[in-house]
Design a protein around this nucleic acid. Structure first.
Length: 564
RNA sequence: UGGGCCGUCGACUAAUGGUAGGUCAAGUGCCUUUGGAGCACUUUGUCUAGGUUCGAAUCCUAGCGGCCCAGCCA
């Protein structure tokens, strides 16, 4: 169950289905769902969609949701992942009712397998993996029965028990369901139920050397938990007949599977296998690298659970294979952060400004509003002095058309401080502007203009003598193509990695109110974007991650001109 | 090619035989001590062809297009 109040959402076919089932009393008014991750990797934003559906829908109808780890393959799974998964679900704001593991059901599953053998519905097959593949047939040709398909119940029972007892090596035999080798649906061509795997399981240790396949474990696990609506992604639609077949043969609680489309995002890969490669090959710094679409990465980047949930709800659910624009995710992050982030002034690329007519040694404490979107957030004092830093981008010696910021002879407002006019510039040997001189108007304290005079621009600043040095990490899309998998022949998705996805700014200047920082705190750096304190922050060296930049109308204009 | 699923503005998603609507993006204007936020407005859509019907995005037929399935992965 989640703690979130139900918010107005547009309808979707799963909710409609639940409403219909409630109306017909199909499950005595119960709604029971489950979220069934395999603990073989970190959760990503695609999982967030499934989580919001599984937990959100159950919550909406006063139902229950279990967290069930689908741990039927000991070779790929690990406790490291179960811990991270639990943490990520809680961080997203959801709470499970029951906590289960498919491995909790290994004994029951084994008993049921014995029953199916007794009923003549399952048999031990000695064919090799390769032979099984050949016997399975092709898209257009039916499969052939295995020569071992007609074994007696007694022989099957004996062999299966000996499989369990560890008498046979890995891969030597499997237990298969006896269905129909001519079915047009491959999943019904005598699917494998158990394989021999002499591997230590992270929960059951060495108790088992045979492990159930997904298809034999999932539906029965749902059934045991009396799951009423078992949501999964579209590629499992072909498995539904098999899901139902096992439940029918066993005569157990009829859980039903409902498939929906996965979440895809532009400029993003969602495949666990590929994300793992990025980590293992060192293309990113880890699963929690802020460029990763993992929940742990997004958390470190500064995304909020609310933003992710709002985005997922807005993106909706259907059965079409679409790709949501990353811009939509970014909108929901800004939307949430705008309401809750305290504003602060920080200069990423400092340019020294000297205010010639301002008294040397004087310090004025200027009142600055903490959050114009939140009257309760209060205000703070920011020190102003003769020498300050402004953003290099906020000065142009030769301003292009439409550029409103500081340039020789032009007056701008220093936020919460004074109106200043640029008089002269100082250049280095390379001809670069290294210092700007201004004069200020003492009548404009606080940025007010008693005479009603207007300036086109307000820029942020930090007092040079009070500034705190900081490292700021700026992120761009991890991939430079909307579809990272679109590559030239012979290449793979890593060819589309964006070489500029990380830019580290090492000498940013922060206003002194940022002296004590807590990892994970979020701020808006005025006019720049939303930033989050990184865990690598130390008392002497603050480190920030840019979550997302503010919308930038000027950048858009510039880009348009550049494009022409 | 056998089977399954799916085609609605640039993107995502509603409309459940009865006015094609919302969000994002894009654009215009207003406002602004963040070129932020906000407000107002605007552009663009039912894959195609037939059929049923007073009426079709919706139902039927046939095309076209996309995705998934031949693991002892999930």
């Amino acid at each position: 169950m989640s703690h979130e109040p139900a918010e107005p959402r547009s309808s979707n076919f799963i909710r409609d289905r639940i409403i219909e089932d409630l109306k017909t009393n199909k499950y005595q008014g119960r709604v029971q769902t489950r979220f069934p991750p395999e603990p073989n990797g970190y959760l990503h934003i695609g999982h967030a969609k499934a989580i919001c559906l599984d937990f959100g829908l159950a919550d909406e109808f006063h139902g229950h949701t279990n967290l069930r780890f689908d741990d039927t393959n000991p070779e790929k799974e690990d406790v490291e992942y179960v811990n991270s998964i639990m943490q990520d679900i809680q961080w997203l704001g959801f709470h499970w009712d029951g906590l289960y593991y498919a491995s909790d059901y290994f004994d029951q599953l084994y008993e049921w397998a014995i029953k199916l053998i007794r009923d003549g519905k399952a048999y031990v097959d000695d064919l090799t993996a390769d032979e099984i593949r050949q016997y399975r047939g092709t898209l257009t040709e039916p499969g052939k029965n295995s020569p071992y398909r007609a074994r007696s119940v007694e022989e099957n029972l004996d062999l299966f028990q000996r499989m369990k007892a560890g008498e046979f090596p890995d891969g030597s035999r499997v237990l298969r369901a006896k269905i129909d080798m001519a079915s047009p649906n491959f999943n019904m061509r005598d699917p494998v139920m158990y394989r021999i795997l002499h591997a230590e399981h992270h929960r059951t240790g060495n108790k088992w050397c045979i492990y159930p396949m997904y298809d034999y474990a999932h539906g029965q696990s749902d059934s045991m938990e009396k799951v009423t609506h078992s949501m999964c992604s579209l590629e499992f639609a072909d498995h539904q007949p098999l899901y139902n077949w096992f439940i029918q043969q066993l005569g157990i609680f009829p859980s039903q599977q409902i498939e929906f489309d996965r979440l895809s995002l532009t400029y993003t890969i969602m495949s666990k296998r590929k994300l793992r490669r990025l980590v293992e090959e060192g293309r990113v710094k880890g699963w929690d690298d802020p460029r990763m679409p993992t929940l742990t990465g997004m958390r470190r980047r500064g995304y909020t659970p609310e933003a992710i949930r709002n985005f997922v709800n807005a993106a909706g659910v259907s059965r079409t294979n679409g790709i949501v624009e990353l811009a939509m995710l970014e909108h929901y992050v800004r939307d949430d952060l705008n309401k809750r982030s305290p504003r602060v002034m920080a200069v990423l690329r400092p340019l020294k400004v000297v205010i010639d007519n301002y008294p040397a040694g004087q310090v004025e404490e200027m009142d600055a509003v903490n959050n114009p979107e939140d009257a309760g957030a209060g205000s703070r004092k920011v020190p102003f002095t003769k020498t300050i830093y402004i953003e290099q981008d906020d000065f142009r010696e030769n301003p292009p058309k439409g550029y409103f910021r500081l340039s020789p002879g032009r007056e701008v407002r220093l936020r919460y401080a004074y109106l200043v006019t640029c008089t002269t510039v100082v250049k280095n040997d390379q001809g670069e502007v290294v210092e700007v001189h201004c004069t200020y108007d003492p009548a404009t304290r606080g940025g007010n203009t008693p005479d009603g005079r207007k300036v086109k621009s307000t820029i942020h600043w930090v007092s040079a003598g009070h500034a705190i040095d900081a490292e700021v990490r700026l992120y761009d899309n991890l991939f430079s193509k909307e579809d990272p998998d679109q590559v030239e022949p012979g290449q793979d998705f890593t060819a589309n990695l964006n070489p500029a996805s990380l830019e580290v700014v090492t000498s940013a200047k922060l206003e002194p109110s940022l002296a004590n920082l807590t990892a994970g705190s979020r701020y808006q750096f005025e006019r720049l974007g939303y930033f989050c304190v990184d865990p690598e922050t130390t008392p002497g060296k603050p480190v920030f991650n840019r979550t997302v930049a503010l919308k930038d109308a000027w950048a858009k204009v510039e880009k348009k001109h550049a494009g022409k």
